[in-house]
């Protein structure tokens, strides 16, 4: 136990919280923006899977991480626009579209990976882990000055470029939502689409922009997963982050700052799970820890919110 505690208080542990939170944060921002636009995109998981696969493949074939990264973004945006086409113009239920994307993201990516790379050996599943070298990963950034601060330097410096952009995106998304006319239109469409339409705001266009934004964020998240978090794509590697993001969006009250803290909480839970298994806890026991914490924190959060909503009543 003391072993675990000393392990937890290490800079490495805190470092890992940020690293693990980053993809969740991207997906959370995606969930926040579409929710503001008045609908839900539950297909974030699938979008990230596709972005992760094509990002790693593109970086391998082009031998450039930048090309891979851009392809990941493109795939995320392209697929989300396709989702939008099905949902907004062919009037399919957006939840069903999301489920379809998630199922394809699980089975379809494996299929595509096999078709494209022809890599499977024996019973092994197709993956791109063998193709991606550290050279093809998103680079890590050492921040001057901060890196030399003891402890803090080892927590904050040396992260992947995409970890930093995740937190930058959080700020930019908040500014976009509350300071720009696009954000105003998104919020107006989400709250009263008729009102927005009545003053000449194109509801369809705004919904497309919102879902494309969610695709862009999923692209970031997917690229991070296969080109930084892990070296290469493997089956189901996103492992529920797209769903956890939906919880983080709700827990954060649908706002960027709240979503960021929720993402960090989930990141902490997963980091803790990893720590537990590293000190020798059976992995079957350790692996549910993040999910247990998710459920418990959602329950606590819900309870607090209800009692907070009720409390002033007694006072009044």
């Amino acid at each position: 136990m003391s072993n675990l505690l000393s392990n937890m208080l290490s800079p490495g542990f805190f470092f890992s919280i940020f690293r693990i939170s980053a993809p969740i944060l991207y997906a959370t921002l995606a969930a926040i923006v579409v929710e503001k636009a008045g609908f839900a995109n539950i297909g974030l998981e699938g979008l990230m899977m596709f972005s992760a696969l094509f990002g790693s493949l593109a970086s391998y074939y082009s031998q450039s991480w930048l090309v891979g990264f851009l392809v990941a973004l493109l795939v995320g945006v392209g697929m989300s626009l396709l989702m939008g086409f099905f949902a907004f113009q062919l009037e399919t239920d957006i939840i069903l579209v999301g489920i379809a994307v998630n199922l394809m993201g699980s089975g379809g990516t494996l299929f595509l990976c096999k078709i494209i790379t022809d890599i499977t050996e024996g019973k092994a599943m197709a993956s791109t882990t063998g193709l991606i070298t550290s050279k093809l990963c998103i680079p890590n950034i050492n921040i001057p000055v901060i890196r030399s601060i003891p402890f803090i330097g080892r927590v904050l410096s040396g992260h992947s470029l995409l970890t930093y952009t995740a937190f930058l995106m959080c700020i930019l998304t908040s500014i976009m939502l509350y300071r720009t006319s696009l954000g105003l239109n998104i919020r107006a469409v989400g709250e009263n689409a008729n009102a927005a339409a009545s003053v000449g705001v194109s509801v369809l266009k705004i919904k497309y922009i919102a879902i494309a934004f969610s695709g862009l964020m999923s692209g970031f998240g997917g690229a991070f997963m296969s080109m930084s978090y892990a070296q290469g794509w493997s089956q189901d590697m996103v492992a529920g982050r797209g769903f956890i993001a939906l919880a983080a969006q709700a827990m954060g009250g649908g706002e960027c700052l709240g979503g960021m803290f929720s993402s960090l909480l989930f990141g902490f839970a997963q980091a803790l799970g990893i720590k537990f298994s590293s000190v020798g806890l059976d992995s079957n026991l350790a692996s549910p820890i993040p999910y247990a914490i998710t459920i418990i924190s959602l329950a606590i959060f819900g309870f607090v919110r209800i009692s907070r909503a009720k409390k002033p009543k007694v006072a009044a």
Binding site: R187, E191, N192, A195, A196, S198
Partner: peptide
């Protein structure tokens, strides 16, 4: 046109 049901966004 001013609609019977107001076309306003309450939180704005």
């Amino acid at each position: 046109m001013v609609h019977q049901h107001f076309m306003l966004v309450p939180s704005l």
